[in-house]
Simulated assay, not measured.
Amino acid sequence: MARDIQITIDCADPASLGAFWAEALDYQVQDPPPGFDSWKQALVAMNIPEERHNDANAVVDPAGTGPRVFFQKVPEGKQAKNRVHLDVRAAPGLAGDDRMAALETEADRLIKLGATRIERHEPAPPLAAGHIIMADPEGNEFCLD
């Protein structure tokens, strides 16, 4: 049986970065615990000080099939290139110009949400289909694949 996984991202602003990735992945912010109408209501009930309300955030696949993405506040900023990164599959099954056009369309959408375009890699068959390297609003690299 395959294990359930969670992807954890260290960041400065979990709420903001979670909102970006929810849009990028067609995910949603995880619902508050049962019995609460909002996360604010739950955090107040748990006696979490207001200055800690943005210490963590999570987004989930509404269909329940993709991994949970968890954002945790850390004091230090990003230091170097990510050793692990997300590939956003924006053009599965497409090749050549059609693939790159679909990747460009997705890159434009994500830039409007706060992403930054880093570099485009052209297709180089048979092994490289082409991709675009992007960074999320906090500088974490990811690929449009």
Rank of each mutant, 00 (worst) to 15 (best):
L17R: 10
D10K: 08
D4A: 13
Q6G: 00
H131E: 10
D61G: 03
A2K: 15
L127F: 11
K73R: 15
V44G: 03
Q6V: 12
A2D: 12
S16V: 15
A80Q: 14
D61Y: 07
N54D: 15
T65Y: 11
R52K: 15
E76S: 08
Q79K: 14
C143D: 10
P92W: 10
V88D: 02
A15Y: 02
P32V: 14
W39A: 06
E106Q: 14
E23L: 12
D4T: 15
A56V: 12
M134E: 08
I111S: 00
Q6C: 02
I5D: 04
G64D: 06
I48Q: 09
Q41V: 10
E51S: 07
P14S: 10
E104S: 09
I48H: 02
N47L: 10
P14V: 09
A58Q: 06
A58W: 01
Q72C: 02
R83G: 00
L43C: 02
A12E: 12
Y27C: 10
R89E: 11
N82M: 13
L86N: 01
M46K: 14
D31S: 13
K81P: 03
H131T: 11
P75R: 05
D108L: 02
M134K: 06
L43P: 08
C11V: 07
H85L: 01
Q79P: 00
R117W: 03
V74E: 06
D55C: 04
A58T: 08
I5R: 05
K112N: 11
N82Y: 06
P62A: 09
D55T: 07
P75E: 09
K81I: 15
C11T: 14
D37Y: 01
A91R: 03
A95C: 00
A128N: 14
P126W: 11
A80M: 12
G114W: 08
V59Y: 05
L103S: 05
A15P: 00
A115H: 03
L103A: 04
H131M: 06
D55I: 05
L113A: 08
K40F: 12
G66S: 08
G64P: 05
